[in-house]
Each structure stands twice: as structure tokens, then as C-alpha cells.
Design a protein around this nucleic acid. Structure first.
Length: 385
DNA sequence: AATCCGGGGAT
DNA sequence: ATCCCAGGATT
């Protein structure tokens, strides 16, 4: 009996690799999902989908993908659009840096690639927002290039097929995964089909918990299945530790019943997006302190005084290592002090605006901003007729 | 290697 | 509640 060591990972000979390719492709033809970005080999559509799919699940992406393609049917249309319009169609999807880099890359393609998506791996990799995985995915899916891919689905599948022990984030493990990703690709054509197939297998069969090994076409080739180690390979990630925060958002209306919005600044969370005025009140202990803290922070930022009114709703959301409780209050401006218009002109004027409720859907907001908007719309509907 | 960037679906 | 997701860029 051989000793089990990290070096005891499975070795794949060329015949087994050939079987893997054949079985994975056959399974994909039968069981693969029909997804919008699989309908063509258009690199533009594939590119958009790959950026949207970074750290974001398929079901979430699908409606955004359709709306985005309708708004920006070509890379030229995307390159020529104002950034705010690009952000608007990304609003709610998260990781807004992706949208900005997508926009920047579209300009590079327009200005340096004659408006057509580059076809060689190095040029694709050089585009903003595109790393090793995304470049490999685009090139193999769109051009059938022999480029390997390692991402959430395939790294889990490959780790099990290789019986790799250890954290997936570790460099030696990553090296093994990328080497294997290359070794499964056929010599001549068909890399795109193989990559699609193994991704889909990782996604639909080789799931993190309780993988569907009974239905897996690679079951007989899998050392992790043979040893019943699906629960420990790959190694579970250490749990994240979150920091609790409490923030307050203000719904401030002017005489025209428009709402005060502020553009998030570079370096801030959601830079470039608009949000209801928001303040950190994590350290506040009492209700009176809360009112005072918000008043002071509003005054120093907008140069006007507000009076806190009723609490409209509470939302909970996460940003990186923070778990945020967001308390949303209605607030009124204290007209005895500074005028509203002056408030909106303090600092950079175009980073503050009054927006009618009906125009909120034209403004790129974060997800919580959209949730507050939706809440207000329901209030208006309830009081309107 | 660690951190930042967001949000939502699944369990 | 917790885990996880078609990652990339920065430090």
C-alpha cells in the first residue's frame, strides 16, 4: 500500500487524457446548458459575458447580459458611450471596477485595434480587466485557441481529478492546476469545446458540497471519488472574519420633492456611482448621539443642516470584509440655516444633484441605492391614488 | 501572499 | 446565517 503524500497525486497518461476529453465533450453535448453567450462565437459577446461572470453567478448575469448587449450592441457603441451610461447598465451587478475597465478596454480596441476584438492571446491579456483566465476563456471559446483556463469550477474539478491536497490558493497547487488545464487540451482543434465541457462539469456535477458523482462521466477516472474524499478535496477555505459596521442613509427632499443624491468619489466605495447621502455611525451608542452625529456629518459635507425624521427601512449588505447594517431615515432640511441650492453647490457642484423619483432609474446607483429607490416608489404608489 | 472590490443565490 | 461564485489589480 502506497503512502499518501502530497506527491501522491494522480498522474494522467495520454490515453486517460484522451478519455477525459471524449467523455467530457459527449456529456456536454447532452447535458450542457444553453446560455445566451454560447449562441455564437462572437468575441465581443463572449468578452462581455466573461467580465460579468467574474465572481458572479450565471443566473445573476443573464438579465444584465441581455440588457447590456441591447444598449451596446458593438464594441464601438460601447467605446463611444459615456461612462455613466455604462455604469447605469452595470448598476446592481457589483464590482463596478469591471465596468470601468470594460469601457477602457473598448476604447483601446477602438483606437488601437481598428475596432475589432484582438485575436492573439497576448493582446487580449493586455486589455484592462482581462487576466490569465479571462484571456484564455475568450481565446478558446471565440477562436478555439489552445489556451488553458482555471477558475472556480475547473480548479475544483481538476483538484479532485488530480487528488490535490492543500489550499487552492497556494502557488504550487495553482501551478499544478494550470499545468493540468494545459494537458487536457487536444493537440489540434477542439480546445474551446473541451474548456466549455470541463467548466460545465465543474459547475453542474463537481459541486463544492455533495458532488453528483453518480452522474459524472469522469467518475471512473477520478481518484477523489475512488477514495471517497470529495468532502476534503479541495480543502475547505478558512472562514472569513467580518467587521460589523452601522451606516445611515438619508432621504432628503427639496420643495420640488426631488431627492438629494451624491456621487461617490474616487477612492470611496462605489466611486462614480450615485448614492443617497451616507454616513458611518458604527460607534454611535444612543438615539440622540445618532441624530447629532448625522447632523454634524451632513453639515460638514453639504454645508446645510438636516433634521432627522422617521426611519424608513433597514438593509443589511456586505462589502469586502464588512457586514453593514444600513439604517435609512427620512430627513428634512433646516431652512432657517443654509439654503438647499447652496448645499448642492458646495464643493464640486456636479457631484451632487436633486433627482425626481421618476428619474432615479436613469441614475447609476449601487444595489442598496436601488433598494431604497424601490422602497420610496412603493411608498409613493401607496399614497398616490 | 494578502487585500480590495459587491452582490445575490443556494442551503 | 454561512458559503460560494466563469477573477483582476494592487501592494
Amino acid at each position: 500500500m502506497a503512502v499518501t503524500t502530497p506527491a501522491n497525486m494522480k498522474h494522467w497518461d495520454s490515453q486517460e487524457l484522451q478519455q477525459l476529453r471524449k467523455r467530457a465533450k459527449a456529456w456536454f453535448l447532452k447535458k450542457g446548458r444553453a446560455l445566451p453567450w454560447r449562441e455564437s462565437n462572437d468575441p465581443y459577446r463572449i468578452w462581455i459575458s466573461e467580465i460579468m461572470l467574474q465572481q458572479t453567478q450565471v443566473v445573476t448575469v443573464i438579465p444584465y447580459f441581455h440588457r447590456f448587449l441591447q444598449a451596446f450592441p458593438t464594441v464601438i457603441a460601447l467605446a463611444n458611450a459615456p461612462e455613466e451610461q455604462v455604469l447605469l447598465h452595470w448598476s446592481g451587478l457589483g464590482y463596478y471596477r469591471r465596468a470601468k475597465q470594460l469601457h477602457a478596454a473598448a476604447k483601446v480596441i477602438r483606437d488601437q485595434h481598428n475596432g475589432s476584438f484582438p485575436t492573439d492571446f497576448e493582446s487580449v491579456l493586455a486589455l484592462p480587466g482581462i487576466g490569465r483566465y479571462t484571456a484564455g476563456a475568450i481565446c478558446s471559446f471565440a477562436y478555439d485557441a489552445r489556451t488553458p483556463i482555471v477558475e472556480a469550477n475547473t480548479q475544483r474539478l481538476f483538484a479532485r481529478l488530480l487528488r490535490l491536497k492543500g489550499q487552492l490558493a497556494e502557488k504550487p497547487i495553482q501551478d499544478q492546476l494550470w499545468f493540468f488545464a494545459s494537458s487536457i487540451l487536444p493537440e489540434r482543434s477542439g480546445s474551446g469545446a473541451v474548456n466549455q465541457a470541463v467548466m460545465e462539469l465543474g459547475s453542474q456535477i463537481c459541486t463544492p458540497k455533495e458532488p453528483s458523482c453518480q452522474e459524472c462521466p469522469l467518475r471512473e477516472l477520478c481518484p477523489t471519488f475512488a477514495n471517497g474524499e470529495q468532502a476534503t478535496i479541495p480543502s475547505p477555505k478558512p472562514p472569513k472574519v467580518y467587521e460589523e459596521k452601522v451606516e445611515a442613509a438619508l432621504v432628503v427632499q427639496n420643495e420640488a420633492t426631488e431627492l438629494l443624491l451624491r456621487r461617490c468619489q474616487p477612492g470611496e466605495r462605489w466611486a462614480g456611482l450615485w448614492d443617497f447621502p451616507r454616513f458611518d455611525v458604527t460607534t454611535v451608542k444612543s438615539a440622540s448621539q445618532l441624530e447629532q452625529s448625522i447632523s454634524e456629518q451632513f453639515e460638514s459635507r453639504f454645508g446645510a443642516s438636516v433634521c432627522l425624521q422617521e426611519e424608513l427601512l433597514q438593509l443589511k449588505h456586505g462589502v469586502t470584509r464588512y457586514r453593514i447594517t444600513l439604517r435609512c431615515f427620512r430627513a428634512t432640511l433646516d431652512v432657517s440655516t443654509t439654503q438647499v441650492s447652496e448645499a448642492s453647490n458646495k464643493g464640486v457642484g456636479h457631484d451632487t444633484q436633486w433627482c425626481s423619483a421618476s428619474n432615479l432609474k436613469e441614475i447609476p446607483l449601487s444595489s442598496t441605492g436601488k433598494q431604497i429607490s424601490e422602497h420610496l416608489r412603493k411608498l409613493l404608489d401607496a399614497n398616490g391614488p
